[in-house]
């Protein structure tokens, strides 16, 4: 570790830890990461920490409590650059399902003593609270994309993170289109690339982990799924996963719930 290397902090909010684990899972690149940045605060990896301010903060998780809403302001105050990592931090995560329901119904269904639970009505992305310098998508994030973003910030250049659809990656790999050739429900056409078309390569439709692509036409895809026999309820579920908090997926889920067809 070089002391002139930029310092890196990793913060956790409401999340499963999978995205920070992607950093630890970098394996052979991990030593290069440790050379390129000074890992100053990363409780999941080490108890030792260096006081801020930090050059780069990676933020995982969404804001779901009043305490977190206060803490994220502190993170911003001690960070030169804030990069959110993962679907929770960039769109609110699976826990944003509460946004279109009454959160008390969930707490009463899940907890023996819901009166002990102190939580906000909505799960919101980090960008709803502070200025964010870059948002890295995915549930979880892609390791290669994380390394690209860290390298870009260390080198002071634009990260090369495409915003087009998963179909681009699918076709570049020469994979069979599971929607056209197998009739599977696949969110690939409306989902941002980044995973390398992982699910289609294993004969499954895309689940939309990377959120909407830059020109997502969710209503057209939903029309196709409906004309292939899928019910509004099932289409709603398809859009109601890790990125239900994104505008495009959330709005389509709402339309299906509203019985648009």
């Amino acid at each position: 570790m070089s002391t002139s290397a930029p310092s890196l902090a990793v913060w956790k909010f409401a999340s499963c830890d999978g995205c920070q684990l992607s950093l630890l899972n970098c394996e052979k690149e991990l030593l290069a990461v440790a050379d390129a940045v000074q890992i100053a605060y990363f409780p999941e990896a080490t108890r030792g920490y260096i006081e801020g301010p930090y050059d780069i903060s990676l933020v995982e998780g969404s804001i779901t409590t009043g305490e977190d809403a206060r803490r994220i302001q502190e993170v911003r105050a001690v960070s030169k650059r804030v990069i959110t990592i993962g679907a929770c931090a960039t769109s609110g995560g699976i826990q944003a399902l509460r946004n279109s329901a009454d959160v008390r119904d969930f707490t009463e269904a899940v907890y023996a003593h819901p009166e002990y639970i102190s939580t906000l009505e909505r799960s919101t992305p980090i960008s709803a609270h502070i200025t964010v310098d870059f948002q890295l998508r995915g549930c979880p994030i892609d390791r290669a994309q994380l390394l690209e973003v860290v390298a870009a910030f260390v080198q002071g250049r634009q990260p090369r993170i495409p915003t087009y659809s998963v179909c681009v990656e699918c076709k570049r790999r020469g994979l069979t289109c599971v929607a056209v050739a197998k009739g599977m429900a696949c969110l690939g056409p409306v989902t941002q690339a980044g995973c390398g078309a992982l699910c289609p390569s294993f004969d499954r439709g895309c689940y939309g982990c990377f959120g909407p692509q830059d020109s997502a036409n969710t209503s057209s895809l939903a029309d196709r799924l409906a004309s292939a026999g899928m019910t509004s309820r099932d289409i709603q579920r398809l859009f109601s996963t890790y990125n239900v908090g994104s505008q495009a997926f959330g709005a389509q889920a709402q339309r299906e719930q509203g019985g648009a067809r």
């Binding site: 087009y164 659809s165 179909c167 681009v168 076709k171 056409p189 997502a216 036409n217 057209s220 895809l221």
Partner: peptide, 14 residues
């Protein structure tokens, strides 16, 4: 056409 088009790029890729 744009109401139906997914802007997914498949037509151009194939």
């Amino acid at each position: 056409v744009a109401n139906r088009c997914l802007a997914c790029t498949n037509c151009t890729m194939v």
